[in-house]
């Protein structure tokens, strides 16, 4: 790559392209550049935080809120204070969808419904313990960096631009922005994972108990709700048809088997070839099947030949 080209690449398509340096490690003793793509956040639907948010693409896999905070502290000095960092993942998407959804204000919800929502929320929190100390981000992930205010963001972006330009320019006294990761890695990461996957009995038992009690309460609440709305016309006078939750399961597998046996017995008594036409049709069917089978075989041979040439002894 020619050096004049390098100089021209600090900004493209509205993005500031900021090279950061991965520090050399004993296993890989090379300084390598990693590129961050930054610009002001510009979502289709803006919210309160939009003006003070910076959109960063291609963050390293071991990025965390603290490491990003540290990075901007070094870029913009004390003025680029980061409030929080949101990494792109499922939760991010959902959160945005939820926040975009219109809030049903003014509709007074019934007591049961409120309780239902509460219980659901409680179940969410009663999850099994986390098994990783730090989550890794997939390659090329995006992040939203929310600054304290709009001016902090502007300062940070401008400083990044300046820095990027200087780094791209290269030369002896070019600045260097080193990436400092705060994540545990190597054996430590996996030891902690091993430890976390085997939580103490007490810890596990309590979260399970919470979940299962809540689940039971929720189930009974829902049954009550369903019973109440059963056959009751709503405001428009319509009755919602609900199905009862009893499933037609045979009492036992033995009973199911007996039923099948009875059906087979009946079939056997009459026999499949009771009428002459049945026998005739069966024979015709067989002939047809033979023919189809033959054609199928011919086709298979043709395919085989196409795949690996003609049949030849090795």
């Amino acid at each position: 790559m020619a050096s004049d080209n390098r100089g021209a690449l600090y900004e493209r398509a509205g993005y500031t392209i900021l090279p950061i340096t991965f520090p050399p490690t004993p296993a890989y003793p090379h300084k390598v550049h990693h590129h961050l793509y930054l610009r002001s956040h510009d979502p289709r639907i803006e919210d309160r935080d939009t003006p003070r948010t910076l959109f960063v693409s291609n963050v390293p896999i071991d990025a965390s809120e603290s490491s990003i905070r540290d990075l901007f502290k070094r870029i913009a000095g004390g003025r680029g204070a980061v409030q929080r960092v949101e990494f792109e993942d499922k939760a991010w998407k959902q959160r945005h969808e939820v926040s975009e959804a219109p809030v049903h204000a003014g509709v007074k919800r019934k007591r049961e419904e409120v309780e239902e929502a509460e219980l659901e929320a409680k179940m969410e929190t009663a999850q099994l313990p986390e098994v990783w100390e730090d989550e890794l981000l997939p390659g090329g992930t995006c992040a939203l960096v929310v600054f304290a205010d709009k001016s902090s963001k502007d300062v940070a972006l401008k400083a990044s631009g300046r820095l990027a330009k200087a780094i791209w320019k290269g030369g002896k006294d070019a600045p260097e922005l080193t990436w400092n990761s705060s994540q545990a890695c190597g054996i430590e990461r996996y030891l902690s994972h091993h430890h976390l996957t085997h939580p103490t009995k007490h810890h596990l038992q309590s979260s399970i108990n919470t979940y299962l009690t809540t689940f039971t309460r929720l189930e009974s609440l829902r049954t009550r709700l369903a019973a109440r709305t059963h056959n009751v016309p709503d405001a428009d006078g319509f009755v919602t048809v609900t199905r009862h939750a009893h499933h037609h399961r045979p009492a036992s597998s033995a009973a199911a088997q007996a039923a099948a046996d009875r059906a087979a017995e009946k079939e056997k008594k009459i026999g499949p070839d009771f009428y002459r036409f049945q026998a005739r049709e069966k024979r015709k069917e067989r002939d047809r099947e033979l023919k189809v089978g033959f054609e199928e075989d011919v086709r298979r041979i043709r395919e085989m030949r196409e795949r690996r040439g003609r049949v030849r002894p090795e």
Partner: peptide, 18 residues
């Protein structure tokens, strides 16, 4: 950016990777 990715792998592997 193959070299950056290899750098990340080396960092992630830490003391496991020689």
């Amino acid at each position: 950016n193959k070299r950056a990715i290899l750098g990340e792998i080396a960092r992630l592997g830490g003391d496991m990777v020689s």
